Simulated assay, not measured.
Amino acid sequence: MGGAVVLDLTFFLIAVPAVLFAGISKGGFASGAAFAATPLLALILEPEQAVALMLPLLMVMDVGAMKAFWRKWSRHEARLLMLASLPGLALGAVFFRAADPDLFRLLIGVVAVAFVAFQLARQTGLLRPLRRPMGPVGGTIAGVAMGFTSFVSHAGGPPASVYMLSRPLDKTTFQATSVIVFWLVNLLKVPPYAALGLFSSQMFVAIVILAPVALAGVWLGYRLHNKVPEKLFFGLTYVFLLATGAKLIFDALS
């Protein structure tokens, strides 16, 4: 299923900024916006190639961010989301095997647009954290959704956030819990991605070349955290996501 990745000028003109942007997001502006790299790559690669290429790079970024949040997470929320993600990952693997590229483009495009709608609803107050903390049932549903969307498009952030925002977590604990949860979820995706044949030799060459870019992005994110207004960063993110999401939906339907 993986196919060859052509490492030409067009690839690097898109891939380097996309990976750098994802690293900056992971390092300084919460990891959710790192999802923007996948739709951008899906404009020049087959959708399954885009998600497969980003997986090892996201894992490199996870390791880069892990040190700052080591053991600052909430074990209860992290454990529930990790366990609940397993059936979601399995569903994602089944969907991956059965779906065609245009369906993937449509799904990634829809998730990109929905991601922007979710974030804007949170920031404008249309979507507020639940007054009562979500219990095990709600957390399990969020975890399953997180596992599925993470498997097919690396966009598990919103379902996880819906659950964690309802819990009594401070900012640091929230971020640390996100880091450890997605570190494990991304690690669990490697065997099924490999079994589905999503990796290729050219892709590994691209990953080796882009890994320093990913780490540089994380470092740059740390440096820019207090220098670049979050509204500006996320405003640009939403514009990119809306544009790429709309393009992927158009391509899939046409």
Rank of each mutant, 00 (worst) to 15 (best):
A216T: 12
L7M: 12
A121L: 13
P229I: 00
P133R: 03
S200N: 11
V111G: 09
D62H: 06
K67E: 09
V144W: 09
Q202G: 15
S254A: 14
V185S: 03
K26R: 14
V228Q: 07
G245S: 11
V63M: 12
T177I: 01
G88M: 02
L41V: 09
L43Q: 09
Y238L: 06
K227H: 11
W70I: 14
P39S: 00
P158G: 00
E46R: 11
V60W: 01
S153Y: 04
R131M: 09
S150T: 12
A160F: 13
L165D: 04
L126F: 12
K26W: 02
V19Y: 01
A18F: 00
R167Q: 15
L13E: 06
F21W: 15
S201V: 15
L53Y: 04
G245F: 04
R131Q: 15
F233D: 02
A99K: 04
R167G: 00
F115I: 07
F233E: 03
D100H: 08
L242I: 10
L198G: 15
V208F: 08
A65D: 10
F199I: 03
G156A: 06
S254V: 13
K171H: 07
V94R: 13
P191R: 01
K72Y: 07
I108H: 01
L198C: 08
F182W: 01
S150N: 14
V190T: 03
V228K: 07
S150M: 07
F240Y: 08
S201K: 13
V144K: 10
M146T: 15
Y222H: 15
L198Q: 10
V111D: 05
M146G: 14
R122M: 10
S153L: 02
